[in-house]
Simulated scan of single mutants.
Amino acid sequence: MKLFENPAGFWRRFGALILDGIVFMIIGFLFIGIDNKDTRDSINGVVQLIYQTALPIIWFGYTLGKRALGIRIVKKDGGTPTIGTMLLRNIVGGIVYGITFGIALIVSIFMVAIREDKRSIHDFIAGTYVTSNPPSKEGLVD
């Protein structure tokens, strides 16, 4: 497979982010009965981290939003992301966006919109990219 084959562009990635946000809102309603806002926010944050980290590992790079739009996260070689890959992508990438007060996020938006490989800062950190290619048949379980 060619490196960075069929990279997904900004609008599909953004649409998947919106759909995943709707999933988080629905999940958040499950915790609405918890009176302590800090506890509720903490639980919601942990659920989101698990969703964004574990689901792509067990589901060939997909989240629900990405699956709906036909895109998925893969390692640079086209393989399914590992736990280390996803922790780098989500946690370290998130830290970079946070310590730059969102400036790195704005740079990432331009990178996905302009670069030929459509990779953002968190993709570079984790050695990933987002592709329109489905998983290979060898990786699927019948």
Rank of each mutant, 00 (worst) to 15 (best):
T63C: 03
F31P: 01
I22E: 03
I109P: 07
K66R: 13
Q52C: 13
G70F: 06
L49F: 15
M111Y: 01
L55E: 00
G65L: 01
Y62K: 05
G94K: 10
T39D: 00
I109F: 13
L19Q: 08
K75M: 14
F31W: 03
A68D: 04
D41S: 12
L30P: 00
A16K: 02
T39C: 00
Y97K: 10
D20Q: 05
T100D: 09
G70T: 06
G21D: 04
D41M: 13
A68E: 05
G84K: 04
D35N: 13
D20L: 05
A104M: 09
I26N: 08
I71D: 05
P56S: 07
R67E: 03
N90H: 09
I26K: 07
D20N: 08
G45T: 12
L55G: 00
F24R: 01
G70V: 05
N44L: 13
T80D: 12
N36V: 07
A68T: 13
V46R: 08
R72P: 04
I22Q: 03
I95W: 10
N44A: 14
G102W: 12
R40V: 08
I103M: 13
L88G: 13
V96E: 11
R89L: 07
T39V: 12
G65E: 04
K37Y: 12
G45H: 10
G98L: 15
T39M: 09
F24D: 02
L49A: 14
T53E: 05
K37I: 15
L19K: 08
I73V: 15
T85V: 10
I99D: 10
T82A: 11
F24Q: 09
I22M: 06
L88H: 10
I26V: 15
P56Q: 04
G21P: 03
L30A: 14
T80F: 08
V47H: 02
L49Q: 05
V23C: 07
I71P: 01
L30I: 15
G28Q: 09
F31S: 03
K37W: 11
I58H: 00
Q52H: 13
Y51F: 13
Y62E: 00
V96D: 11
G33S: 04
L105P: 09
Q52A: 14
I58N: 00
D35V: 11
F101Y: 15
P81K: 02
Q48W: 14
R89P: 01
G84H: 01
Y62A: 02
I43W: 07
L49T: 10
T63R: 03
T39N: 01
Y62H: 10
D20T: 05
V47Y: 03
F110D: 03
I34W: 01
I57N: 06
I34T: 01
M111K: 04
D77E: 10
I99F: 15
V46G: 11
G98R: 14
A54P: 00
G84P: 04
A54N: 01
I32M: 11
G45D: 10
G84T: 04
W59L: 08
F101T: 02
L49N: 05
P56K: 00
F60W: 15
G102Y: 12
L69R: 08
P81N: 04
K66M: 07
R72H: 04
L19I: 15
T82K: 12
D38F: 11
G33Q: 05
A16M: 02
I91K: 00
F60C: 14
I95S: 08
A68M: 14
